[in-house]
């Protein structure tokens, strides 16, 4: 690692000021620290969000949305949402491994927007709202492609608000060495329609499969997806799977998610 200093603010205000002063936010570090070790980043100064209590925890707002502080760990989400939003709790409970889940955070995952990360699928399918220190961003406007988001320089996520669907499930086909999804699908059924978000598959990062959403909104069953396929053109191709394979997995995993949710 290149040398850097660490600041440890205890309030959001101090954290934002330290980041504006040239620091890079450090949340759980489960992606950032390996990146630093590989010398793929040279931040000069890290601002640890670990001690900022107001960024942690889970609550429910007046609209019934579940509000998760950005520095809340996957383990906490898995535990706290088990009754209120089991689909999202199950997603959080299967990220990485137990030790990773005790450090990794929802805000860190969404800010990084790895094209194979789990949380982007959960947030996009749920129609979540990403709250930052300056504004609120709808999930539909937030994800801008592989490792790219709507976040401005110096802007940090403070909270994520999730409407709770009638039914939801996350089905993940893992790449066993990394434990990241090769392809994973989050299906969320709301009163006014179904949302389907797919991660791991596309060169443009997480995306909504709108044809499947239309079919499932009129008939929420795996059979409603028969004959539908994802265009392989924009799929990721690597040593673990080619474009056609990933496109095929998109349909298979969506069917499994619908079956699990129904």
């Amino acid at each position: 690692m290149y040398a850097f200093e660490i600041e440890r603010p205890t309030t959001l205000q101090d954290a934002v000021a330290a980041i504006a002063g040239g620091g890079q936010a450090l949340s759980g570090g489960q992606t950032l620290i390996p990146t630093l070790k590989a010398r793929l980043a040279d931040p000069g100064k890290l601002v640890s969000l670990h001690g900022v209590a107001e960024l942690k925890g889970v609550c429910t707002d007046d609209d019934g949305r579940i509000c998760i502080g950005a520095a809340t760990t996957h383990a906490t989400v898995a535990r706290e949402l088990a009754g209120s939003y089991p689909g999202l709790a199950s997603l959080a409970a299967r990220i990485g491994d137990p030790a990773v889940r005790n450090r990794g955070t929802i805000g860190g995952s969404l800010a990084n927007n790895d094209p194979s990360a789990c949380y982007p699928a959960g947030a996009l399918a749920s129609g979540a709202t990403i709250v930052t220190n300056t504004r609120e961003i709808a999930a539909d406007d937030y994800f801008h492609g592989m490792f790219a988001t709507a976040l401005e320089e110096d802007e940090i996520i403070t909270e994520v608000k999730f409407p709770v669907p009638r039914a939801a499930a996350y089905e993940k086909f893992i790449q066993p060495a990394s434990r990241f999804p090769l392809v994973a699908v989050f299906v969320a059924k709301f009163d006014d329609g179904v949302r389907v978000a797919i991660t791991g598959a596309s060169e443009t990062g997480v995306f909504r499969w709108t044809e499947a959403e239309a079919a499932l909104s009129s008939d929420f069953s795996a059979g409603a997806l028969d004959g539908l396929r994802v265009d392989p053109d924009h799929m990721i191709a690597d040593l673990h799977g080619d474009k056609a394979y990933r496109a095929h997995l998109c349909a298979v995993m969506t069917k499994r998610a619908v079956t699990a949710a129904a």
């Binding site: 440890r8 570090g29 640890s48 137990p98 030790a99 990773v100 005790n102 450090r103």
Partner: peptide, 19 residues
């Protein structure tokens, strides 16, 4: 490298001492 930090399982190679 797994240790317990405040009772939670953590990989000590993926956490800074300062934290």
């Amino acid at each position: 490298c797994t240790v317990h930090v405040d009772g939670l399982l953590v990989k000590a190679c993926t956490m800074f001492a300062a934290e």
